[in-house]
Structure formats: C-alpha cells, structure tokens
Design a protein around this nucleic acid. Structure first.
Lengths: 352, 352
DNA sequence: CTGTTAGCGCTTTCAC
DNA sequence: GTGAAAGCGCTAACAG
C-alpha cells in the first residue's frame, strides 16, 4: 500500500534534469545546504543530511559537472594520450593507471592520436579547454615542435611516458639499454659477429635508446657497428617485415637479429617465415614486447619484456602527488625491463 | 623593430586564463561579438572578425568548455566504454570510430571497465554528470541489472556493440553464426564427428550466438550436440587453456576444436602446445579474432576474422545521425565476419 | 552588424 | 548549522 505522506519518487515532469534547486525545495532547505551535502565536506546536521539525501534519491539528482567546473576549475578528469590504442603495449598502461586514479576519484579518458601530431595537438587543445586536471602523454614524435611547445604551456600536472621532451614534467621511462646489452652479449657469446637491429624511429626515445645501446654493446664486444645492420625508421609490422627481408636477402646477411618493438617483431617473424628460414638454425632471433606471440610460435622466441601496467600505475601515482600539490623539480623514474629467455638464440651457421 | 602600435603578444599578467572579456577589451568589441567569432556561426563584419581573431591569438585565448556546456548543455564529447582496453579486438573499434567523430567535431574518450560492472556504472554516471553528448558501449555482462537499467535512462544517443540489451538503442553487431557454421561444415566434411567449442560466456551475445550456431550446425549435420564439448563460461586466455586441456585430456577427446575469442584462442594454443599435440594431425583447430597470431604460428591456423574498425566507424556514423536529430526507432546493423582459411583443419586421426 | 543582458547550476563566502 | 547572494565564462535572445 502506497504511503501518501511520502512524495512519489516518480517525477511527473521529468523532461528537465533536476538541479540542486529542485532538491533544495523538496528537502525544504537552501541550495547551499544541498551543495554541502553533495560535496560531502562541510558539516551538516545529521537529520538535515538525511532529508537532503532522500530528496536527491527521489528526484534522481545528478550533479552537473560543468557547473561545478565553472566554480572550482576542476574536473576530476585525467587525459591519457597514446599513439595507437590498438597496440597493447600502450593500452596496458591505461589498465595500470586506471585503478590508481579512480581510487582517488578521477576518471581516466584515453585518446588515440593514431600517431598524428595534428591529432595530438587537437587532444591537447581539447584537454585544456575542458580543463582536465592532469595528463599522461605518450608522443608519436618527440621532435614535433608545435606539440612540444604546447606541452610546455599546458599548465596542468603532466607525466610523459618514455620520451625525451624538453619540458618541465615528470617522466616514467623504460630501461631499453640493459636488455639490448644482454641480448648482444648472449649473441656474441654464441659466436655471432654480424648482428642486426630493427627498431622504432630514433625520433622517439625507445628507438634511440635501443640503437645507442646496440652500438655501445657491439663496441664493448670489440665488434665494429655496421650501420647497414641498424634499421630505425618506423615501428610498424610492415616496416619490420620489409627491413627484415632486406637484411636477410642482402649481401652478407646477419646471423642474428633483434626485433625491437612488438609490431616490428611480428613483421620480422613474417618475413623470416616467408623466406623459409629456420630459427635458430639459419638465424638467431630476439623479439620484444609480445610475450604471448613469442611463446606460441615455434620455436619460442627470446623477448624483451616490460610491465606496462606498472608504467601506468607509476605515472598515475606521480600525477596524483602533483595534484595533491607536490611542488618539486621534475622527476624521472626508470622502470626495469627483463629478457625472457627461450631457445631462439643459437650458434651461427657453420660454427656449430 | 617592434611596432609599438600593436599590443604585445606577451601577457604581462598571464596568471589568469584570458576570457572572452579580455579578448573583447583588446579588440574593442563587446563580448557578444567575440562569442560570435569564436562560435564561427553568426555573421560578423570581416574587419571586426580579423581584429577579434588577432586579439584571441595575442591573448592566447582558449574557450572555456565548462562555460559553454553550461549554456548549451553540449560537450562535443563521446564516451566509449570497453571491457578491456588492452584487448585489440575492442580497442580497434576506437581506431575506427575516432576519425569519423573527430571529423564532425567530437572528441572520443575511451574508458576501460576492466570487465567490472561497478566500473561500468561509474563510467555511466561520469558520462551523465559530464553531459557527454553520446555513448558507444560494450558491456562486460549484459545480464547485470543495474547497468542495464542505467543504460535505459541514459538520456543521450547510445550505440551498443554486439550485445543484446533490452534498451531502446542502436546496435552494431557481428555475425557470429555464419563463421561457426562454415567451420563446423568444413570439419564435418573432413570426417570429424567429435567437435568442441570454447567460447565466451553466454552472458554476452558473442558467446551465446556462437554456442547456438554451433548446436544448430551440428544438428544440421546430423550430429548430436554433446554439451560436454561446449565450454562457454569466460573469455580469458587462462579459461581457454584450462578448457582446452580438460577437453583434450578427458575421455573421448574431440578431434576438432573451435576456439572462439582471441584470448581463448591464445590459451587453447598454449594448452595444445603443452600437450605436445600436432595440428592438424592430432587435432584440427580454428581460432578467432587474431589473424597475426594465427598466421605466425606453425602451422598457420584457420581463423574467424572481423573488421573491428568498421564496427567502430559504423557505430560512430549511427551516433552522428542521432546527434543530428534523427528520430527513428532503434536500428540494428549486422556486420559480416569472414573465415580466413589456413591448413589447420584436416582429417581426423585414423581416417586418413 | 554589434552591444546589452539574463541566466545556465553550482560553490563559497559572509551573516545570522 | 543554515540561508542569502555573488559570480565563474559563456551563449542567445533582443534591441538598436
């Protein structure tokens, strides 16, 4: 039996979204009090609070975020810019960051730039106009002037992932040098003298760091770095396949190959398969950033592996510290990478 | 030489973000005129427009999205909810939707629910409070009451992806029946009588649709569907591995297996590898939604393939039509799936 | 074509 | 502990 003394929870005129004013009227309090209850902060008499909460439930009140932002200039929103959201290496970062941020009351919104600096600029502009409270950013090309400039003026806490950008922001980056060094050493120890590297463009830190580490490791092994064996222009599967094919069918082909980058790794595998080469008999191989693939192909391939969710969680924590008012010089956090060994690195042909 | 008649583009007091009022003062016009120029819509004298644009550039003016939303109730923002952003099957949808939406002036913000209905609810609430203009949604569990209920009241244009939800919204879904039918027919034609299916939970349409199609195809082939050979409870790699292992080591193991779902496919492959089974000699196999993996393992595996970017582009177009005011009953678009043939389906053991 | 003005819904003093 | 009131920055009438 319906209790006629209680107002019906069904609104007769639900066209307009209820505002703080509707709730106030229903609870017979002022809008200030409703605001205090909604905000949860200031002290309100228990009985009043209960009346207001009931009125909120009955009207289906939802605070208007735009109005809040008008007053407070805060949105409880973090933007996450990634070059390619379909690449798990990037999207896993979001998986790691999200729980940290949501626990602190922030929503994480991911945007994929599709590796286009123009889209990156559009994102930064949108983030600024929407007054996002903080940003986590992975650039497609850290040499792009307008993007870097805009990042410098962004005016909100910013964490940059694995890029060297001349901007006063916190950075989380991965150790690319150590795994390359490990792999080169292992290949050299097996007797390889002609080792090739395919990796991302040197316009982004990972490509640069891997190429540099590669040259250094070769030098330390007493081997002359042959620039023809270093390919670092792009990070697509197509690029990986094309360069692998070119390397392996060219004069004096390498006996060992490091495919740095998950898409490059896929492409290189395809080229190797197409050429009918057997790993590690015809070619020793190491990949990166795709353990699943590495372990399911035959034979399983030794891979560089990174915990991208940890990258995301770390970035989120650093951002929260800034949002909490931390005023410190830009910080840089280096996260380790590991090498997962499988049997894909053997002795070069003719040396067994 | 500096032209003293022009105001300096460097603000002496840049602490506060310039507003429409600052621009108006600098251009010696009213704020209404600045608004008209910013909005780009109404007609403004060419000379005035130029002055205003100059003043905007000089002050570095950025419209305040919250203030605009206050007045217009629109945000030019579309929310995209996915169960797992690290799964390319989902994130490719965003890659397809983004260009369509950005061309129409909308930003696409992706949020990963991590398959948690609670996070889904949090997303829907955030979207509503932030007054997102439209939503594209993939639910983790279409039977979850509160989520479905909230979706029903969402109040903005909504496109649902590949789920059966009792809500008046447009839907884009994939054809799961046809590829399953194709695969079963091919397996039966090769002489298989014991065919197994591992697929997602029947709490979501893909799992249900595949399981139903599977039963139907078996019946049409005159085979009794053995429920023990149908596993449809989850969609993780771990689940795929566990069920594949159980099926293949149990009594009367199947001679052919369909692993529906990209993660299940990965897990099944791992189990098969662990058991030392050879495809297609010991087992005929088909996978789904991971062409790269299917083509790089040895032997390459026949897979069900879908163009997820096309799903995204279609959803985006449908959403835009609604945003443009289309008032029509909920629409359902079915997008095709294909089967990419490789040699992983052969004759059952002992029948060759 | 342009200026003036009234709020959009909310938070936050400031009184009481 | 609660109410009243100002105003965040903008758009959209409405005048002129």
């Amino acid at each position: 039996m319906a209790d006629r003394t209680k107002p019906s929870p069904v609104n007769v005129f639900p066209a307009r979204r209820p505002t703080i004013r509707d709730v106030a009227a229903r609870a017979s309090v002022s809008i200030g009090t409703v605001s205090r209850v909604a905000g949860g902060s200031a002290r309100v008499a228990e009985a009043t609070r209960a009346r207001v909460l009931a009125a909120m439930a009955e009207t289906g009140y939802q605070p208007n975020a735009a109005a809040r932002t008008m007053r407070t200039s805060r949105t409880r929103t973090i933007g996450f810019l990634i070059p390619d959201m379909a690449n798990p290496v990037f999207s896993r970062v979001a998986i790691g960051a999200e729980p940290v941020l949501s626990a602190a009351g922030y929503m994480l919104f991911a945007v994929s730039s599709n590796r286009s600096p123009a889209r990156e600029l559009a994102f930064l502009e949108a983030a600024q106009q929407r007054q996002m409270d903080g940003l986590i950013v992975t650039l497609a090309d850290e040499t792009h002037g307008p993007v870097v400039e805009r990042l410098g003026r962004i005016g909100v806490p910013l964490v940059i992932l694995d890029r060297d950008v001349p901007v006063a922001a916190d950075v989380v980056y991965s150790d690319h040098a150590r795994p390359i060094e490990t792999l080169v050493k292992q290949m050299v120890a097996q007797g390889h003298r002609r080792i090739a590297l395919i990796t991302a463009s040197e316009k982004i830190r990972p490509g640069r760091a891997r190429a540099e580490a590669f040259r250094k490791a070769l030098a330390e092994a007493g081997l002359a770095a042959e620039e023809r064996l270093i390919r670092s222009r792009a990070q697509t599967a197509e690029y990986g396949a094309a360069e692998a094919h070119d390397l392996l069918t060219g004069p004096k082909p390498p006996t060992a190959l490091i495919a740095g980058g998950n898409e490059i790794f896929q492409g290189a595998l395809r080229a190797i398969r197409l050429l009918g080469l057997s790993v590690p008999r015809d070619l020793s191989l190491a990949g990166a950033d795709d353990r699943v693939l590495a372990e399911l192909v035959d034979p399983p391939i030794t891979v560089i592996d990174r915990d991208m969710a940890e990258v995301g969680a770390t970035a989120a924590r650093m951002l929260l510290e800034r949002l909490d008012g931390l005023d410190a010089p830009p910080r840089r956090v280096l996260l380790g990478s590991s090498v997962v060994l499988h049997g894909s690195i053997g002795r070069p042909k003719g040396k067994r």
